[in-house]
């Protein structure tokens, strides 16, 4: 009994240290991140936390890639009387349950980064979404490649007029991964270039795995691969390491590799001439938009953000819309310095 009490006291103390900093009048906002070890989401989270300083009391939870855990966290937020919620869902298709919970307590809900179905969004007037059009990231990746292909005829190694490529997929069950895979190739074909897929495989967004897959492909398709697409930069960098080991990037041997995210190591690789290009999913502006939206709603004001106008699900501006679309940015050798 005594021990239980002392453990409880200790817990309360620890928890109160984390909370008691901000003035009591600031609204409380609950934030869930689908998992903390996702690099991109860490940027978003950091922006949200920075933006909230002095304005709101945040409770930021790690959902550890576990939707049931996130549901429990949201329940806890509602019990604690959060004024608004900013939720980065683990599984966007399970959103109706969360929307139901928030609607019941009339707490505004800002979903971000992982897009739920429009039909679910329609169920609750105070449900908003902040994110980027995942298709757009794939499209931009494809445009970078198409641009390069047209400017460098020597990129067509076997001179057959067809672009032979390999694709490193993040996680096949992830919609971003699907869109990037699909729309990057669509953009290339839209530019009038014929393509042939040599291989595609999943490397789970992971750099060592991508390195291993790429090394195997270099064996299986020696000299045939003309372009490497990767769903994110970590995998692109893994592929680059495998290419380096196979003798690329010296003595004029080059391989165009593209990724998404514009992480610092990717920008570095751009600078050094390894990476052809990447696409910035603007974490800072996404985090800022998420916070501004959740903050205005928590104060009971109309939804507003300085990042981009409110829009509808298709991307058309609409003052009554429930979507904020944060644009992607192409990053290549020409403009990378602006993002460092």
């Amino acid at each position: 009994m005594k021990r239980t009490v002392s453990i409880l006291v200790a817990l309360v103390l620890v928890l109160s240290v984390g909370v008691g900093m901000v003035a009591q009048t600031a609204p409380k906002i609950g934030v869930c991140i689908y998992k903390f070890d996702d690099t991109f989401m860490s940027y978003v989270r950091n922006t949200i936390e920075t933006a909230a300083k002095g304005k709101a009391i945040l409770s930021v939870q790690d959902s550890m890639y576990d939707q049931p855990r996130q549901n429990d966290q949201v329940d806890q937020f509602l019990v604690e009387g959060m004024k608004s919620l900013a939720i980065n869902m683990v599984d966007p298709s399970a959103v109706s349950v969360l929307i139901g919970k928030a609607a019941k307590k009339k707490v505004p809900l800002v979903l971000f980064n992982r897009e739920p179905a429009a039909a679910d969004m329609a169920k609750y007037a105070m449900a908003y979404y902040v994110g980027a059009k995942a298709q757009e990231s794939g499209t931009m990746e494809g445009e970078i490649v198409a641009d390069y292909w047209k400017k460098n005829p020597s990129a067509d190694l076997n001179k057959d007029g067809v672009l032979q490529y390999v694709m490193l997929i993040g996680d096949p069950s992830n919609t971003d991964a699907k869109y990037r895979t699909e729309f990057s190739i669509k953009a290339v074909t839209a530019a009038g270039i014929k393509v042939q897929k040599l291989a595609e495989d999943t490397a789970m967004w992971d750099r060592p795995k991508a390195q291993e897959k790429m090394a195997a492909w270099l064996t299986a398709y020696a000299g045939k691969i003309e372009v490497v697409f990767a769903n994110n930069d970590d995998m692109a960098l893994g592929a680059i390491e495998a290419l380096k080991a196979a003798g690329y990037f010296k003595d004029g041997k080059y391989m165009p590799v593209v990724g998404v995210d514009a992480t610092p190591p990717a920008l570095d690789a751009l600078e050094q001439g390894y990476l052809l290009g990447t696409v910035l999913n603007d974490a800072k502006r996404q985090g800022l938009a998420t916070f501004e939206l959740a903050y205005s709603l928590a104060l009971g004001k109309p939804a507003s953000t300085t990042v981009a106008p409110l829009a509808n699900a298709d991307g058309k501006p609409d003052p009554k819309g429930k979507y904020v679309w944060v644009p992607y940015v192409k990053v290549t050798k020409d403009n990378y310095k602006a993002f460092k």
């Binding site: 903390f36 690099t39 860490s42 940027y43 989270r45 992480t263 610092p264 190591p265 570095d268």
Partner: peptide, 8 residues
């Protein structure tokens, strides 16, 4: 920088 991949 916050959580980030370490490169360079």
């Amino acid at each position: 920088m916050g959580a980030q991949p370490l490169g360079g």
